[in-house]
Design a protein around this nucleic acid. Structure first.
Length: 446
DNA sequence: TCTGGGGTCCTAGGACCC
DNA sequence: TCTGGGGTCCTAGGACCC
């Protein structure tokens, strides 16, 4: 028996914890740069606010229609910390190997070895819900099923259908009741079935979760892929998906962002590209990786068809894998200069690190100074190249330590060290305080 | 004026090897 | 007329997720 616990409108709910005046009122949280709606409360949904709505359009409509709608810029520092609290409450219910944190706002719990402790899953679900609510302030729903896909389905039903009171246990239903319930769920709401597959399945006469569950997995594999086959088998109760208790190291790291205002020349673009390279390098170091490949891309604004469009990208295999900010930034800005063309209005840039591997598997370049073969030559005098590497590693360590202590971007190299607000920096006009992570922004109660 | 950012997995096809 | 069999590695593109 697996549970999926998922927070309702997570980002909005995190904001509401410290703004109880907003309970029962329409709230949205916007993407970076105050772009689109990425989280909305049920009250906002009732107003007709679609997911993904651009804020500049929504704001005008809200004004015209005199809506009571509160918007927030994304505050990932707050959401990340609230997520950590939420997950630590869930960690009390099962041993670490039976918790699988799936995203910032949802976690699977495997109770299959602990059913004797919890004979009544629905009661357990309510206990979880109440404890998370009391200890973190977050509202959550709980779904139970025999596989991850079924637990996801149960959670979805608990959220959509109020009669479940936030907890749905599919394992307690007899076959006819289960079939009837799954017949109410559109196939596109099944985990793993997106827009494209959903359209094709409906074409083929499979329009509900119940239809998909009744389908022949082998035939769907022939028609689509092994991914769809696994989804069908999971719906039928066979566990086909892996269980990850801690997030595996990233295979690719991206840092990208839209600019606050468009940029035109390579010189304009140097600072943001340099900053992305620095951020990506920092992420790579944090997981103990080095990158074998680095890439840069730019985009113009696809929503302005009247503008000439240019979305160049280019990547390069590094002579020697690296997570050094200065090295990655130098390659990135060189790539930038090779792809940017005059006369375009660029609105976004990104840096991507690929071919990530553990720094311990460091593969030197043929032309590097020779390296010793570990312990066998431990007493050997280090070469100039090795001394240099060690110094660089120390330098990066100082950089990371300083930025952890004083905040990301506080200490930087070259271009990205300039902290002054610039026109490429992100728009965040409606940012809430970091209530839980910054002493200066903690709520005062008098 | 203004439209997010970050990932994974799978498959097909091309290039290459013996 | 007729042109093998068995592989690997890499990349691009398409699908999905939050």
């Amino acid at each position: 028996m697996l549970a999926l616990v998922d927070a309702n409108s997570f980002y909005c709910s995190a904001e509401r914890v410290f703004r109880p005046d907003l309970n029962g009122r329409a709230v949205v949280v916007l993407s970076n740069n105050d772009g689109c709606v990425v989280s909305r409360t049920s009250e906002a949904k009732v107003l007709g606010v679609p997911m993904g709505a651009p804020w500049f359009q929504l704001r005008d409509q809200a004004r015209r229609s005199h809506w009571d709608l509160t918007a927030f810029s994304s505050n990932y520092t707050l959401y990340g910390d609230m997520s950590r609290r939420f997950m630590s409450v869930l960690a009390q219910f099962v041993p670490p190997e039976d918790q699988s944190v799936y995203s910032i706002d949802e976690s699977f719990l495997d109770f299959s070895k602990h059913t004797h402790l919890h004979p009544d899953a629905t009661a357990l679900g309510h206990t979880i819900r109440d404890r998370v609510r009391v200890w973190t302030g977050l509202p959550v729903c709980v779904g139970f099923g025999g596989t991850q896909t079924l637990a996801k389905m149960a959670n979805h039903i608990a959220k959509k259908q109020p009669r479940w009171m936030g907890v749905c246990d599919l394992t307690a239903l007899a076959e006819p009741a289960l079939h009837a319930l799954l017949s109410e769920v559109p196939v596109g709401d099944v985990w793993g079935i997106g827009r494209r597959l959903s359209a094709q399945l409906i074409d083929g006469g499979i329009s509900t979760a119940a239809d998909l569950r009744a389908a022949d997995p082998k035939r769907l594999r022939e028609r689509f892929s092994v991914v769809v086959e696994r989804t069908v088998r999971e719906l039928q109760g066979a566990r086909c998906l892996g269980w990850e208790t801690e997030p595996p190291a990233k295979k690719q790291i991206i840092s990208s962002r839209s600019f606050g205002a468009p940029l035109y020349t390579a010189d304009d673009l140097m600072a943001p590209v340099h900053a992305h390279a620095a951020r990506a390098a920092e992420k790579a170091r944090a997981q103990g990786s080095v990158a074998g490949r680095v890439g840069v891309w730019l985009t113009t604004n696809p929503f302005r068809p009247q503008d000439p469009q240019h979305t160049p990208s280019r990547s390069v295999a590094l002579p020697s894998p690296s997570a050094d900010t200065a090295v990655l930034a130098a390659w990135s800005t060189a790539l930038l200069r090779s792809i940017v063309r005059p006369g375009y209005r660029y609105v976004k840039a990104g840096v991507v690190l690929d071919d990530l591997r553990p720094h311990t598997e460091h593969q030197g370049s043929l032309f590097d100074a020779p390296r010793p073969g570990r312990a066998a030559q431990a007493d050997r005098v280090p070469s100039r190249g090795e001394e240099w590497d060690a110094k660089r590693a120390q330098l990066m360590h100082v950089l990371d330590t300083a930025n952890i202590k004083w905040g990301s971007g506080h200490l930087g190299v070259g271009w990205s060290g300039i902290r002054a607000k610039q026109d490429w920096s992100m728009k965040r006009d409606m940012l809430s305080p970091c209530y839980t992570t910054n002493w200066d922004e903690v709520r005062a109660v008098s």
